[in-house]
Nucleic acid binder design. Sequence first.
DNA 1: GTTCTAGAAC
DNA 2: GTTCTAGAAC
Length: 745
Amino acid sequence: MDIDSETTSSKEDHQTKTIAVLLVGAPGSGKSTFCDKVILSASRPWVRVCQDTIASGKAGRRVQCIMSARAALKEGKSVFIDRCNLDRGQRGDFTTLSSLGAEVHAVVLDLPAKLCVARSVKRTGHEGNLQGGKAAAVVNKMLQNKDLPKLYEGYSRITFCSNENDVEEAIKMYSALGPKDTLQSGCFGQKNPDSEVQPGIMKFLKKVETPKYSTSQAKNSTSSEISADDSLCDKEPEKASSSCNDDVKGTGKNAELAEGTVADRGVSSLSNTPTLAFPSISTADFQFNIELASDIIVEKVEEYANKLGEAKLVLVDTSHGSKILSLVNLKAGRKRIDSSKFTTFVGDITKLYSEGRLHCNVIANTANWRLRPVGGGVNAAIFNAAGPELETATKERAKCLKSGSAVAVPLPSTSPLFWREGVTHVIHVLGPNMNPLRPDCLNNNYREGCKVLQDTYSALFEAFASIVKNEEKFLKGDNISGKPAESLVGKAKDHAPKSDQKVKRESTHESEKTKKFKGSQDGIESDGQGNLGSDRICGGTSKTWGLWAQALYHMAMDPGKYKNDVLEITTEVVVVNDLYPKAKRHILVVARKQGLACLADACEEDEVLLRKMHAKGLEWIQKFLLEDKSLIFRLGYHSVPSMRQLHLHVISQDFDSKHLKNNKHWNSFNSAFFRDSYDVIHEIGRKGRVTLKDNEQLLSKELCCHRCQRAQPDLLHLKAHITNCRIPFPLFLQEKWRLVRASTM
DNA sequence: GTTCTAGAAC
DNA sequence: GTTCTAGAAC
């Protein structure tokens, strides 16, 4: 059924298209049998090239296999390459057979190890003399290191067989191929969901198992909502078609398990390693020689792979038949570049996560010298996908770009590329131009051209290294002493906001405070410490703070008076439990600085304070996680707070609280009204201030689950839904600095 | 920030 | 009848 009859008939008068089939499989997987069966019944002429017998009946070398295959193809015969071919290095050279006009296929006999072992132990008279007791050890060893083929290695088709039935089907299919028939291109029959992510990429991603949901999402990004829901509910198939807000109770343990699984295996690992995706520079529109370019890529990758620590590099191209990817793969294989640090990937660089499940937080753009979103290719695609945000952010950084250089642009969180794909930076690069129709053509001067291309890759990788370094610095909490808080460490337990006692206590206190101020008109008078009462300048506009709204301010100014209520006091912050916690854990880190009523008041000089507040929040999260490691936290600010004095919310994402009572509560923590501490710090660092959004609109928007983003009719449904929903958090939250969980601490 | 209340909407 | 929403008061 895969036979492409249309193609066949349209090529009626063309010459026979030869095929080179690489069999991939452990000893005992049935490669030789496969070849023999096809050759016996096929009308197309086939030749079997077997490394075990190629040297006058004895085992030969890979080169001999290639020579032999080339000879057969030149005679118009199709060939089977009968050797294990279990890793990329072993397979590399065979894809070059396409230069003879042959289609290169791979047939993977990925049968259970047990079966392969059993067969190879039992057999007698094996050509390679791999039989008996030693076979078991060899097969096992080989299978441990297997790295199945990917389309981007240069195959036009890969057929996976995972059981004997599949093998029989594949044999029939190849047997049925007449001299002029062809098979449909692509990847077929792979049962393992990893295949959807391009198999080899899993090694690159430290072989993390992809969660089930990713398969459906990757397959059909436009209907990910439904797919995601289906996979979520697969424990209860009958509920799969309805939304998961059904009253599926008693999920406690299961839910926890599911969460743990998701966090541990899939997305978090995918998201946390800094990864740069880059297209091949100058080889498209700038017509740089591909052979030379591939040498330079491999040379530069080799140079930087180790300098970059844990960070990873991915060369991306949209085309399956990409010559540059094949060449780079081959050369990287020869140089034994660590495939967990560098890989190639076939896909759209603007959709790596949504379509390929590959999360790259930084992507490179082959820009033009004006840094304008014009033209075609990668540049237009990236500007288009990133929206006007990239253009604006780029203008802030640079006006133009010299060839051989790079400029890194942080992407605003409003850019679709940021929130959909998890891209935080775009690095624009400009390589050498060999195209006479484009500016600054080097007229085939490859001496100069190679130097410029080397410089461009160096600039790109340096810029990436600098981004990685900054992120690390941020995560370490630069300038912050790692010491635990001196004053009230260990109070987490004592002050757990579990009991209502605490709330009541603060409640009482608050009413006392209020009583205290009852006599004063409008509350504008001095608070007794020479500070203004309720009139503050907030972000340039005067804002009146009601008396009730000043409790935090008073605590921050004179925490000694509130010793029973504060969890911790330092010279710069006080930490308190939120009076009305909206989740199991919900604390506030309050700045003690005068004149800092809210986020709008924060300016450049406050960056250090904001970092310290963040670090303090992390310290407390660490304590909370000791008690309940299933909690997941988010740290952030309300765009326009109700309470005077800048305070950082540190809140667990269960939202399991009787105090969460209305839409505004929900949206204040689950819309752009809630500004992640990470983003606030970066924005202050870059612009010296924080931009705030239209708040009323944000707070009254419809209720959406913070995980699956599915809209809920009202708060009751939402609450029921979130107790069950285990869809992973949206990508922009997956960054470890936005969501904090046990596995990321 | 919460609570209370009244009127609208269902 | 119940639920939702907005405004006032604290």
